[in-house]
Amino acid sequence: MLTSQRKKIIMEKLASEGQVLAKQLSDFFEVSEDTIRRDLREMASEGLLQRVHGGALPASTAVVTFSERSQIEIAPKRAIAKAAAEMIASGQVVIIDGGTMSAELVKCIPKSLAATVVTHSPSVAMGLVDHPLIEVIIIGGRLYKHSIVSVGAAAVEAISHINADIYFMGVTGVHLTAGLSTGDLEEAYIKRALAARAAEVVVLASSDKLNAASQYTIGEITVANAIVVEQEASPELLSQFAQKGISVVRATSK
């Protein structure tokens, strides 16, 4: 079998099974594990998958710039954002993550809402300037330009003094075994710190993030108390989230 044919089958298995193991692939193709590991390395370098110990997972597609991501799948993002905004109650302290999903979330928050929003995203903060009843607290630090958020030790220190009711988390990967992940190490630290300071963590996940993984783990899937997804998301996958005790909210486009 040609290498290209083998890689095509590996991608098909990733799509259908959610992960592949090097030993099982070695047996299936009747080739050495070294050959499979070489295939996986090459595919990972092409951004086709995310290598993990013993095998590989589907790779997250969230690797383009912020401005490019903001133009991708706008309708599903708006539906998820609207469903998330409806979870916010008057008087709450709310942490809003950075990223394109959070930018949509801010647009859905009514100007009549009285609440406190904590964010490490300058974009989120600016989006709330015209909300007269929302107090905005900005977490400072080094600017991570890919997501336009503050990261670093100063940000972690400021986060440690917050007690929030709810945290809306953006991720690049949501996977049952690999957990919640993102593409930057410092950003993963920040998200983990924010999650630890909120009574409830709500993950906002468009379909391209589901059953995918990035390089840096934020935490196990159970860090999330709830996940807001598109209406069309796989019922089978969502039932597995529910079995983990995670509430699943399907966003409608209406």
Rank of each mutant, 00 (worst) to 15 (best):
S4E: 15
E12R: 09
E12D: 14
E12L: 10
A15F: 07
S16N: 11
S16P: 07
G18K: 04
L21I: 13
A22E: 02
K23P: 10
L25S: 01
S26I: 07
D27A: 14
F29S: 01
D34T: 14
D34R: 13
I36K: 03
R38T: 05
D39Q: 01
S45G: 15
S45M: 13
S45V: 07
L48E: 09
H53V: 01
A56I: 04
S60E: 01
V64F: 12
T65D: 13
F66S: 03
E68I: 15
E68W: 11
S70L: 13
Q71H: 10
I72E: 11
E73H: 12
A75T: 11
K77F: 03
A79Q: 03
A79R: 03
E86C: 11
E86F: 08
I88L: 12
A89T: 11
G91F: 00
V93L: 11
I96F: 09
T100N: 00
L105R: 03
K107Y: 07
T119R: 00
H120R: 08
S123W: 12
L128P: 09
L128Y: 05
E135D: 14
K145S: 15
S147Q: 11
S147M: 12
I148D: 10
V149Y: 05
S150T: 15
V151H: 04
G152V: 04
A153G: 08
A153S: 12
A155T: 07
V156H: 02
I159Q: 06
H161E: 09
A164V: 07
A164D: 05
D165F: 00
I166A: 04
F168P: 02
M169I: 06
M169R: 08
T172N: 15
H175K: 00
S181R: 00
T182G: 03
E186A: 12
E186T: 11
E187Q: 12
Y189T: 10
K191D: 03
A193P: 04
A193W: 01
A195C: 14
A196L: 07
A199S: 14
L204S: 06
A205E: 02
S206N: 13
S206R: 08
S206T: 14
S207F: 09
D208P: 07
L210G: 00
A212D: 05
A212Q: 12
A212C: 15
G219L: 05
I221G: 01
T222R: 12
V223C: 07
I227Y: 05
V229D: 00
E230G: 06
E230H: 06
Q231I: 11
Q231K: 10
Q231P: 07
E236Y: 12
L237C: 06
L237Q: 08
L238G: 03
S239F: 09
Q240D: 09
Q243D: 15
K244E: 15
S247H: 12
S247C: 09
V248S: 04
R250N: 07
R250A: 02
A251W: 03
T252F: 10
